[in-house]
Structure formats: C-alpha cells, structure tokens
Amino acid sequence: MNRTNLWRNVRFWRFAGQAIAIVLVISLIAFLGFNLNRNLARLGIRFGFGFLQSQAGFAIGETLIPYQSSDSYGRALLVGLLNSLLVIATGIALATIVGVTAGIARLSSNWLVRKMALVYVELLRNTPLLLQLFFWYFAAFLSLPKTDAPLRWLGFSFSNGGITVPGGLSFSPEFSALVLGLSIYTGTFIAEIVRGGIQSVPKGQWEAAKSLGLKPAQAMRMVIFPQALRAIIPPLGNQYLNLAKNSSLAIAVGFSDLYAVASTTFNQTGRAVEIMVLISVTYLSISLLISLLLNLYNRRVQLVER
C-alpha cells in the first residue's frame, strides 16, 4: 500500500527534488573543480595568494596613495580599488545631478526644453556605454587642443591633458572621460526614473500646493519631490549599482581601476582563479555596501504610516 503510493506522495517528491538538486549541484562543482585542479596541475600553477606579495613591476598613472612599480601586486590592487571607489562616488554624484535635471526637464512646460531632454535620453540610452566611453576619450578628449593652449570657458580649461576646474583641481583625460561617460549614460536612466516618480504624485498635490500660494518651483521642491522620492529611491539604487559595475569599463579608456589592475596582474602572473576570486569578492562587497546604504536611506524617506 505504502509502496504504490510513493509516486503520488508529495512529501516524497519534495524530499527527492531537493536531494536531486543537491546531488546535481555538488557533482557539477566536483566535476568543474576536478578539471580545474588537473588543468592547473598540468600548467604547473598552485593555488594561493602568495603572489600578492611579489613585485608588481608596472606603473599606474593615477594613484590616491603613494605607489611605485617596485611595490607589490597587493598594493597595486589596492590602488586600483581606491581608484574604482573614486570613480563610483564621483560618477554617482554627477549622474544624479544630470539625471534629476533631465528628468525634471522632461516634464517642463517649455516645449523646447522637453524635446531636448527627450532627445538626450533616447539618443544616449540606446547606444552602448563602451562605445560612448571610446567616443568621449578618443574623439572628444584626445582631440582637444594641446595642454599649453587649452580651451577656456567659465574658468574651466579643457585640453588633451584633461580638465582643470576653477579651484585648481585638475583631472586626467582618462578619469574625466570615464566619469563623464558613466554619468551621462546612467543619467538617461535616472531621468526616466525621476520622470516616472514625479508623474506618480497625484495631480491634487500640485493643485493643493498652488492653492497654498506656492510657486511652481517651490511646489516642486517642497511638496512634489519629497513624495516622488519614495517611488524614485528603489530603482535609483539599481542604477547606482549598475554604475558601480559599469565603472569596470575603465580599462577601455586606460584608467587603472580595480579590474584594469587585476587584468594586468593576470597577464603577468597567469593567476586566473585567484584574480577571479578577488574581483568577485570586491565587486560583490561594493554592490552590497551600496545597497546597504540605499536601504538605510530608503527607510528614512519611506512613508511611516500611523
């Protein structure tokens, strides 16, 4: 009796399903691990992170901490990580400014402003970021005049040696192209999110703000935007995560971020597995950190109901 019913027993199937899943996953991992082990043995590579202490021997153009080519791979990777974090932080700030501006412009009562924002969004959202980075770096920055005769505009000076902003701060063309490309590309997505968020605020809120005597700009700042923020924050966080991940395209413009340094390290040492682990753990931590911060912020802006 019991036996004939086994095939119709839900609990049996639940157990069997999980057992099959475990067996499949473990055997897949074992299969891949076995091959990896054998292939590495054949190539004469032994797994271990000891190579991080040996001398890197390559120079890095921009560093936030002192670094020279006689330093270790570990230090080079740290330099790369800090560079990545700098790009991510600057990129997020700029992308937010660009995106929010464009998102509000998409809803402007001015026809021309609306259409310009639309063209910006549709044009740049539908082309690959990598291509845009190539364009900014090779076609825009490297085609600017030489450093001794830069283009000057509003205190900014642009040359193929990079951008100098009024307070004397200067950025290399690699960094500028990367951050500009990232924030202009991500800005298109943020613009659409901001537009959707503002449109999700009921019309009555505008009318109520108007009847209180607030001017449109005031109404936007004090009534509409805080409410729109609740719809904006979660997808905005996704865009920040995308920007952080896309910052790894720095290698395309020759900026030494974490991935670029890791890639050079791999080319010199052949340590595929270790590099893979390092890259994965670092990017996962960055992603986790960003989503943690966003969740904290999200909790603050969300409506607390009585």
Binding site: N35, Y259, A272, V273, I279, Y283, L288
Partner: peptide, 23 residues
C-alpha cells in the same frame, strides 16, 4: 551572485576559466 558582478568580470571568467574547468 551574477547580478552583483560586472559583465566584464563574467566575460573574463568565460574567456580564461572556461578552458580550465572543462575536460
């Protein structure tokens, strides 16, 4: 895991690791 990693990292893995983990 995959969604936390940049695509360039996955492609690197596919180019470099795939030949290593296959028989």
């Amino acid at each position: 895991l995959i969604r936390g990693l940049p695509l360039i990292g996955i492609l690197f893995m596919a180019q470099v690791m795939l030949p290593l983990v296959l028989p």
